[in-house]
């Protein structure tokens, strides 16, 4: 039944029907926004990237395949928008990634001292990694996708995801240790 409804929804989406797309937006906007926050570590940026993601999705509706799954399709577009952003930042040598006071306040509300420090280190570690590794780590472990699903989102095989995840863990471990030691040094 769910499959039939999904197929019908995709048919409507392929015709660029506004109601169908609005339904998709309302269903997935929080999920995509939080995914982009987990990658970027910046609420405001995640909001802008979410906006870009859904507008890109709307523009590419006629090209949507009938057998597509909506959530992985949106994740793929969101990942591409995030990569594009990093590429642009590298080209024009923008400001380093920092969090605004709004995000600091929000984290302070949601977590205790220990968790706050831990999350700041996670954020710093992910921000220092190459996007092909950070996206793999976040999709597989934070978003809970399988290797096959992660591969479909990233456009690589499940076997490549397993290899990449293994390397991503090593990179994350080193980056997290650096971030943690930096925080402790600041505290002295």
């Amino acid at each position: 039944m769910a499959m039939v409804l999904e197929a019908a929804l995709i048919e409507q989406l392929r015709r660029q029907e506004e109601d169908a797309f609005t339904l998709v937006y309302e269903r997935h906007k929080t999920q995509i926004f939080n995914y982009l926050y987990r990658l970027s570590g910046d609420w405001e940026l995640a909001g802008d990237l979410t906006h870009d993601t859904f507008l890109s999705a709307y523009e590419s509706l006629p090209k949507l395949r009938p057998d597509s799954n909506i959530a992985p399709w949106l994740y793929r577009i969101a990942t591409n928008r995030f990569r594009d952003l990093l590429r642009r930042r590298r080209v024009i040598n923008w400001l380093p990634w920092t969090d605004g006071p709004a995000s600091e306040a929000r984290l302070a509300v949601t977590g205790g001292e220990e968790t706050l420090s831990e999350r700041e280190s996670v954020k710093a570690a992910l921000a220092s990694m190459k996007p092909e590794y950070s996206t793999c780590l976040v999709l597989r472990l934070a978003e809970g996708f399988s290797s096959e699903e992660t591969g479909a989102i990233l456009g690589i095989s499940a076997e490549a995801v397993r290899m990449r995840l293994s390397r991503a863990r090593v990179m994350f471990k080193a980056a997290y240790e650096i971030a943690e030691s930096g925080e402790h040094d600041d505290g002295l």
Partner: peptide
Amino acid sequence: LMVDWGSRNVPLPIDAANRT
């Protein structure tokens, strides 16, 4: 750490949603 990082969902700000 990663499961914890993915455990909290924050709603998209209303103004951002309205813009889209």
